[in-house]
Design a protein around this nucleic acid. Structure first.
Lengths: 207, 207
DNA sequence: TAGGAATGTAAGTGAGTACTTACATTATAG
DNA sequence: CTATAATGTAAGTACTCACTTACATTCCTA
């Protein structure tokens, strides 16, 4: 009977149902039912469906720990750093899968809110990653490429992989080593490219 | 007063409105109004909203010319082929922007239909691209990497770029040479990777 | 010019929605 | 033990939506 616990249950039910059926498809009746609560209780706590959704988006937004994805990467070798980052990024997306789905499906209806969420999700980590690239470029460890575009490519590939597998196909990427294999493959191509080395043979082989 | 013309107008209005407001948000009243037609006419032609949406999805699906994206690439050098393919892919996405948006936002509500569309959009071109990679690998022109994953990476990066720019940020990628620059950058990294060459300096520079 | 098909006007039906009101019940804190 | 805050039950309001019915109008064709 603690109000905060009740609110939490309602917010959980909201994010789940909206990600399944969209904002208009998720009725207050069913949200309340799934939260194990009366519809009236929902309105007593949040006043309106619109307000409930706003609070839901804000309380479940992406800020918290995404900016902590890049901290201890400086010590690692390049390839290992990218693999670690890639895995963390995918796991972070998976944890917020419902919000990612809401973001995609409600983009048309709430452009402002969703753009803000997208910014929180991607922009900061993007800039940090670009800075990381630039630093390595200055050391001569990396070629000269547009760092920001490369960061977008790297995260974009992983995001696209996540979308295809988790959202479109409904497979669990954490099972059966799928994710690790995908991350390794992505990082390998991202680092070494696809063209055969100029000096004759292949630069590298995989099993 | 030709029925086919009326149907077309209604289908156009449907795809536009649904991509703006989602399936539930697009009312038959407004669809009819935007088509310059009475609501009754809409129902006389399509019977139900659900049926209208189905026909809309089917008539506007992706099949037509996407499989013709890969035809004349065999003669071109690798880099040029990828750039051409990338540009065509982005332009094709842009032509079908409304359907892409519908596909994303109605994924939760119509998984079957949207998965089918997604398959039509991506799978075939994906496999063809993977085959292209495999052929070049056999010739020794490319390294040994998982061809299918690489194809997904390449298209995924471009798709992600499209999503960010056209859908999230609302910018027109065809203006100001944005698209060409992005494709060149993507292709460059995809081909050559980001690591500096083992033999000392950079393998390649850009202006 | 007559006839039939496509469309329009107007009014309405039934179901579902967000949200409300009035009152009863429970649980916890002082 | 009592007062208060949180929740429940039940009924209902005002609205919108997909969809229908009955009848009038327009336009192309034969």
């Amino acid at each position: 009977m603690r109000p905060t616990a009740t609110k939490e249950k309602i917010l959980d039910a909201t994010i789940a149902l909206v990600s399944e059926k969209g904002y208009l498809g998720a009725t207050t009746r069913e949200i309340a039912r799934r939260a194990g609560v009366t519809e009236l209780t929902l309105f007593r706590h949040f006043g309106s469906k619109e307000n409930l959704f706003e609070l839901c988006v804000e309380s479940r937004s992406f800020l918290p720990d995404l900016r902590e994805l890049l901290p201890d990467l400086d010590g690692l070798p390049y390839e290992e750093a990218l693999e670690t980052l890639g895995r963390r990024f995918l796991l972070s997306l998976k944890e917020r899968k419902q919000m990612v789905m809401i973001m995609q499906s409600e983009m048309a209806r709430y452009p402002g809110k969703m753009r803000r969420m997208y910014g929180q999700l991607m922009d900061e980590i993007l800039k940090t990653l670009a800075t990381y690239f630039t630093a390595l470029q200055k050391k001569g460890a990396l070629r000269h490429f547009p760092a920001e575009l490369a960061a977008r490519m790297f995260l974009g590939m992983l995001f696209s992989y996540f979308r295809t597998e988790e959202i479109m196909r409904g497979t669990d990427i954490t099972k059966g080593g799928r994710m690790d294999a995908a991350v390794k493959g992505v990082v390998d191509i991202f680092i070494h490219g696809t063209a055969a080395g100029k000096n004759g043979a292949l630069k590298r082989r995989r099993t």
